[in-house]
Nucleic acid binder design. Sequence first.
DNA 1: ATATGTGTATTCTCCGATAAACATAAAAAC
DNA 2: GTTTTTATGTTTATCGGAGAATACACATAT
Lengths: 143, 143
Amino acid sequence: MFIGEYTYSIDEKKRLAVPPKFREQVGKKAVLTKGLDNCLFLYPEKEWQSLVEKLSSLPLAQADARGFVRLMLAGGMEVDLDKTGRILVPDYLKEYAALNKKVVIAGVLNRIELWDEEKWDTYKKKIEREVGDIAERLRELGV
Amino acid sequence: MFIGEYTYSIDEKKRLAVPPKFREQVGKKAVLTKGLDNCLFLYPEKEWQSLVEKLSSLPLAQADARGFVRLMLAGGMEVDLDKTGRILVPDYLKEYAALNKKVVIAGVLNRIELWDEEKWDTYKKKIEREVGDIAERLRELGV
DNA sequence: ATATGTGTATTCTCCGATAAACATAAAAAC
DNA sequence: GTTTTTATGTTTATCGGAGAATACACATAT
């Protein structure tokens, strides 16, 4: 399980370090893809497999599902970690998530999320403001 | 079960002592994360696991749930107790809870809460003022 | 076949951060 | 009153990130 939030710089060659605490869990190969809310998702090989299975089961007839599957699959890219634990972020993903120099790397359950620092701050502030209400609504779900 | 309220100083290296009465129950590793009402939650490993299970079952497609999971997970951090029973509070959590030197450490059922002393006093006074009304409302819930 | 260019991979070093070990002083327990 | 526990402070050594420099692979052109 991934947990915690770190900030790293993406260098001019679009290389980005995976935090040491995550490296072992990620392994040598991972999949980087477009996520929800303008961030990127980074999945370890195994987690990616089980996600793909879920996506496979979505109904082809449903336009929403087609779109989502296309976003995740066509948008994805296999990435390798180099000896020092960095990945290479493809241009089109860097652009999708509007990544600048400072990138927030957040562990969320079975995936790692990459956010542009500014976007992350904005999002976080919004959530923190609303968290009381959200918790009330989630109560129905048993949290 | 955690019970009671203690006050400790957080030092300039952001180390904070876990009260001796809590140490055995907490163990060597714990998870510190953002809580509700601007405090921090400290969970023993086991309690954290069962919380994570609940969070895992929330639907990825629901924006509210995503936000809440991100707050708890990305906001969390594994912390170790050092030889003298202290944890290291990460900068971003210290900031989230606006911790100053004096920190109130309160046992609440299956978790420990960390509060800035001033915020705690204010909150406590507010609750004490409203306790009558609150009790009325809770009666409907069967307390 | 050689030269040149472009982009990626690797290694190295510096500096700062950070956490582990150590030390001291105060308080509590017996 | 002595001993143990606890709270807090200081020092030290290790580790990690960032950037620069180098080495390597591949392509194109001469």
